[in-house]
Design a protein around this nucleic acid. Structure first.
Lengths: 147, 147
DNA sequence: CGTTACGTTGACGTCAACGTAAGCGTTTGG
DNA sequence: CCAAACGCTTACGTTGACGTCAACGTAACG
């Protein structure tokens, strides 16, 4: 009863030959590559963004999983929520096998862009106001008591 | 055993004579004025930002409390954390009775301003990147598999 | 054989600023 | 006289993206 469901060897720390890329990675490998903790990848899995294969209990990430991680982290930089990313990845998969869903993805990205620009506008306003208050020494200035 | 510890009448909704300002307000009055919920003011009290007088159980806010609320909400628009605001209000009080602490307050505000500007820079970068990705249709484009 | 490094599954903790609800008292107007 | 409106306290829920245990298995090195 050897627990050998597979002999493939994820590019673990003990076989640091980075030249050969077997297309399968251990969790630690990807954590190092993307500078995230295992908790993060497991969390993404919980959230349905990843579904790596298993060797017994251990997770085996494919090149596709790796690509998805890359996309997730890219989306994160743009402020996409994980739920949103899950949707987008689903669309992406559909686009892979079937019709191009790039259209919808672009739409989504443009929405997000609009949100970011709105946020920027608010932030800009706040910055200007704060600058003014500082310049005029009206920071924390008592308002005239309306009596 | 009348619960009459005081006869002062906070300018409640039933005495809407806004012309007379007794310098004391009920929670509802200030909630309407500043468009916050009672929960918010009680929360600020919990956090040590406010300490209104009491008439039995009921809160009686003074003109000073009202001014503090104004400052808190102003700070909120600039992204000051409540803990930070508490410190600033303390400095403000010290400045009232003693030396001018305006200096330190300005410093704090300038720090916050710097943070906001840094945040805006990041946001700007992200916006530009996202714009580029959208324009070049490289959103969710698969990276070349390094094999 | 022991140590070290890595992996696993729960499950609860964190942070901020409140929201929400339960259950109660008081005051006021119709 | 009763209900509405207001107030109070206590305490748990919310949101997001993980962190941080605990308790254990497994594999390789020396």
């Amino acid at each position: 009863m050897t627990n050998c469901t597979s002999d493939i060897d994820p590019a673990s720390h003990h076989s640091p030959d980075l030249a050969i890329d077997p297309g399968v990675y251990g969790i630690g490998d990807l954590c190092r590559e993307f500078e995230v903790t295992p908790r993060t990848l497991r969390f993404y899995e919980d959230k349905g963004l990843l579904a790596p294969a298993r060797d017994g209990q251990r997770r085996l990430y494919s090149a596709r999983d790796r690509a998805r991680i890359r996309l997730i982290l890219q989306g994160r930089r743009f402020g996409f929520a994980l739920d949103e990313m899950r949707e987008l990845l689903d669309l992406y998969d559909i686009g892979d096998r079937g019709r191009m869903q790039a259209h919808r993805i672009i739409d989504h990205a443009e929405q997000r862009l609009a949100e970011m620009e709105a946020q920027r506008a608010e932030l800009d306003t706040a910055i200007r106001e704060l600058r003014t208050l500082i310049a005029e020494r009206r920071i924390f200035a008592a308002q005239p008591t309306a009596s």
